[in-house]
Amino acid sequence: MLRLLLQELRFRRNAIIGWAIGLTFLPAIYVGSYPLFEAELAGMEAILDLEIYQAMGMNFGTFEDWLASTVINIVPILVAIYAVIDGTGTLAGEEEAGKLELIVALPIPRWQIVTVKAIALGLALFLILLLVAITTTIVFLAIESQVETALMWTDIMWGLLYTWPIVMAVGMISLFLGAFAPRRRTAALISAVIVIVSYFGSNLSSQVSTLESIQPLFLFHYLDATASLFETGPQTSDVLILLSVALVAFVLALIFFQRRDITVGAWPWRRARRVPT
């Protein structure tokens, strides 16, 4: 199982480095450019009243607000894209490409294959966030003296690593859909819709009182992308809910992959349970 895990990580090595480098630019630019725009940002309240910014939960009042709105709010969305690509690619993608047949035919139980792929996906997501957190922290240390903030470099590190549960939940949902849907494209489409609806739904429902009751349905409701994250840390209940979602999705992936006819590409209910008469 360890060998399979190492192999799965090896498959992801280039993707982890590539995504980490690509994602690093965004928080590095936002954090690094803050001293240049600090004065202008104070006069942007009018812009932030626009519905699109409200829907995205933006607030630029302080450095902490700026950091939460531009980094903590956006990075998990981008890492979630990787989670969807990897989550649907590792079972459904490999099945479609014909690579999974050789692995399934090895004397390895299917639950081990799914477990190893889930662990590798979780580690890949964590490593991407860690690399992004390290570079963001380095940029922060470079501008720290020019910014009025009580934040420590560890707050920035933790702030980004706290987003791991939500991207893990997205990754596991994608993994499950890869084991459930007939095609990777279908699984990726459903996963992407879940992410987009969840992100905008969470922010919109927090703005509209009549939608408040459905807020708990959205995954991003459980991600604190406000300055309060740096003061109190994430809510333990939010983290537990996101990890529970990830766990349930993983268990469903195990169940459906266990029953899946590899290479066939069919919805579970299309599987014949008896010979037609």
């Binding site: 060998r3 192999q7 280039n14 014909g98 690579k99 047949e101 050789l102 035919a105 090895l106 004397p107």
Partner: peptide, 26 residues
Amino acid sequence: YLPGELSLYDNMKASQFFKMYFSLQK
């Protein structure tokens, strides 16, 4: 086992593939 519709991990060298495949079975 040799499947009829053979598809392999394109980014690996053949030697790497054999080492991996060897390590995963009796």
